[in-house]
């Protein structure tokens, strides 16, 4: 029995191992590069002669404030975008008829808009309300541009919660708003966790809004610093890879924190 089971998992397991090696290989190269001195960088796939931690010092030194800025931008933006996604997903999941579908459709069209095209009008908008080069400005922008996707995601999530729960709550004297705040939202932990992972990654890695709407150390996030390790003519591969690996950490931590909730039920978890 045991050997039969072992045989049954042997092939899938080896496929997984091969896949994991392929997935990890580029990261290993990145890690090795982050430990090479400039004179060794020309030999990309060789091992470093000695571990050159200087790259991490350079990366850390230059990232400085921007790392904190990224955290200050990302955390509230993720929370706000989740909240707005839930606020707009809720009515859309429960409204029946053409009106709701029209609004839903209208909001979803935003998913196909490439952000490059809004850049210049957006710059004016943010400046005119005095939020240029500020962290709250980045919250606003990230929240606004998350509306279509978060709506899409949360609406699908809420739609999988049995309608009977909603009707029962109303009969018990709950208002629709009360149902949302007191029952639905607290029960949606897994959906929100899943969306939080997706949003953290998207907002943390944003470069376009960062370089359009921030200019000083006060608000510039870490992606702009990372992009700064590569200029038009030269690329400092060592510090670039070191900075990349450092900047991975927060997203990874988010992932590890939320993955339990995530796995418990990505979609439709609340009702079951």
């Amino acid at each position: 029995m045991n050997t039969a089971a072992a045989r049954r998992t042997a092939l899938p397991f080896s496929i997984l191992v091969v896949a994991a090696v392929i997935f990890a290989a580029p990261l290993v190269v990145a890690l090795l590069t982050s430990l090479k001195s400039p004179s060794e960088i020309t030999r990309v796939i060789a091992l470093p002669n000695e571990l050159y931690f200087q790259n991490y010092a350079i990366a850390y030194d230059r990232m400085g404030r921007s790392f904190l800025n990224s955290i200050a931008i990302t955390v509230p933006s993720v929370i706000l975008s989740l909240l707005v996604g839930a606020i707009s997903g809720y009515p859309l999941a429960y409204m029946r008829g053409a009106g709701g579908r029209a609004v839903y459709f209208f909001l979803l069209t935003g998913m196909i808009v490439p952000f490059q095209i809004v850049q210049i009008p957006l710059f004016f908008l943010i400046r005119s309300i005095g939020l240029y080069d500020s962290i709250p400005g980045m919250w606003l922008v990230h929240t606004a541009y998350s509306v279509p996707f978060c709506t899409f995601f949360m609406r699908n999530f809420f739609a999988s919660v049995p309608r009977s729960m909603y009707e029962a709550a109303l009969i018990d004297g709950c208002t629709p708003a009360g149902y949302f705040w007191r029952l639905l939202l607290p029960a949606s932990g897994s959906g929100l966790a899943a969306l939080a992972i997706i949003q953290s990654r998207a907002i943390w890695n944003d470069l376009l809004f960062a370089i359009t709407l921030t200019t000083s150390d006060k608000a510039t996030p870490v992606t702009a610093t990372i992009a700064g390790f590569a200029s038009s003519l030269q690329v400092e591969y060592g510090p670039l890879m070191a900075a990349t690996l450092i900047s991975l950490l927060p997203v990874m931590v988010t992932y590890l924190l939320f993955q339990k909730a995530f796995v418990r039920g990505l979609l439709g978890g609340a009702g079951k």
Binding site: G228, S231, Q234, V235
Partner: peptide, 21 residues
Amino acid sequence: ASASAARADGPKELWHYYAAG
């Protein structure tokens, strides 16, 4: 927002794209 809007005149900047090396 209002706190951050009250921003003093910034430093005089020199923009360049010499980012590395």
